[in-house]
Design a protein around this nucleic acid. Sequence first.
RNA 1: GGCCCCGUGGUGUAGCGGUUUUAACAUGCCACCCUGUCACGGUGGAGAUCAGGGGUUCGAAUCCCCUCGGGGUCGCCA
Length: 592
Amino acid sequence: MLKSHRCGELRKEHIGHKVVLAGWVHRRRDHGGMVFIDLRDSSGIVQVVFNPQTLKEAFHTASSLRNEYVVQVVGEVTLRPAGTENPKLATGEVEIVAGEVVVLNPSETPPFYVNEDEEVDESLCLENRYLYLRRPRVRDNIVLRHKVIKFIRDSLDAKGFIEIETPILIKSTPEGARDYLVPSRLNPGKFYALPQSPQQLKQILMVAGFEKYFQIARCFRDEDLRADRQPEFTQLDLEMSFVDEEDVLQLMEELLTSLVKTVKPGMEMLKPFPRLTYMEAMERYGTDKPDVRFNLELRDISDIAADTDFDIFRAVLNRGGKVKGICVPGCAHYTRHQLDDLIQLSKDYGAQGLITMAVTAESSGTSGVKSVATKYLTQEQTEAVIARFGAKSGDLLLIIGDKSEVVNKALGELRCEMARRLDLLNHNLLAFAFIVDFPLLEWNEMRSCWETMHHPFTAPQQKDMPLLDSEPGKVHGRHYDVVCNGCELGSGSIRVHQRQIQEKIFKLLGYSEAEMQDRFGALLRALEYGAPPHGGIAIGLDRLVMLLAGEKTIREVIAFPKNQNAEDLMFGAPSEPDKEQLDELNLKLKGS
RNA sequence: GGCCCCGUGGUGUAGCGGUUUUAACAUGCCACCCUGUCACGGUGGAGAUCAGGGGUUCGAAUCCCCUCGGGGUCGCCA
């Protein structure tokens, strides 16, 4: 080793030790007669002092050091002189009096700061990822990610789970997301797909009798990117035999709770994790991934609106729509300009418009409310609306009437936006919650066919089995989601383990016998050979670490992420293949 | 594909029709000074065809249009 100790670990008890350190020059403070170097390695930072009286040569070298130079320092750990301790540094009670310093490698001036966490154009960070990763915050994120994975492995191992790798080159089943395809050289004209998730493989592992499987699995989806979506991402994928919903949810609650307590002991959670049905979540929060850290819940006022003279709302209700709203505390003073801004926001989220009602005196009926709607409302109706929201003087009601989906979507977004503006978000709280009782299927208007809400392997709830033939839309699936702070963290289900039921669902989805065989033949066959009842879940690991780290994008917790165009800016991937490569693969590019 | 936001020395910002723009500030860089700093300090210096192109105007970093690049989001993500 070129070093005897790690910079960040030196403490008072090391005083008097002769140490050899190696790392990067984090910062240099040159006082002419004395030079201080903050030396950084993967463990942290320690101050090194160069005094010309102790060693001329080392002092001279120290003066020539620049940021990010890689150096080796031989010196002695000493107590800092009284009054010069630095409480901001973990090593701030001590310092290294250097005797010798060697430049192991100089460095160009970095294109952006490593020693400051200033926001920089992201392309630059991605092109120079090795420099960005040197930033202590980003390094800590990557270390946190390691701790999360390690904790998961250890605790699942302790519970009897087996980690099994599944293949990356698999068969394409063109459902759901687009597949990444990989051409096969040995089978000209044929392609593998990269897994969108190991779903079918892990179910087959249950048929194989492993009973408790997990994997830290890389998954690939060729879809547009987002702050929380990368084309390749990591899932904690797990599956268990002989379980029901309660077993999986209990396991997840235990795992997530103990994980947070271990890696982020300062963070709070809601215990036990709240459970909401899909219906409740949509009604109260307008989304199936609610942020339950704050209230501002949606209230339905369709019944009141139906009796008013307000034509817009009556028309909406006649078409089967809804009138709902939220009550934003203390915003009755909003100016015309601010209200227009909210109306624009609701339009951006798909609503036709937004009715605002500023409550100025909650018990004075129409005269205590400022709104374009008051002329259509009677005294009693106004009071009923105010009562429905529990609104107080000074509150602002935001009301939307439209198709149910549009109302929920727009109000759900407005709810979150207002929470941000009113600073209602507790950033120290991880509000995990379970969403249950999802519909198994939803009707696709465009293609007029049934589609699965999640995936076709979810088992229908037993009580709804009779409805599968008559009213498929009313069947609930044995599906559950884990959400946290408005982010979909993971989803899972108890699976179908009987071939005839699985076939029935495929048929409902409009598959022909041949398509079924081609895409799911292996799984269907496996189900015939003593497939145990089983179920599991997959948790987005990048998103989990993002939430734990308090980051806004998963790119901050992935060592080498891609940009919005799915490009790797450091290596320049994707790139054009050589002609020889194409020839070997029996491929010809369109237009060449 | 739609919508929104952004693009000014290496980095981050200000400037948003002319005046104090000969483009400012901070930091970084270079040189010199400085023996207890820790975002050290001081003095001086180099460094920008204001993303690119077109237009409006007597005059454009500033207004308009197009293109390019980046981000957010909708669609999409079984």
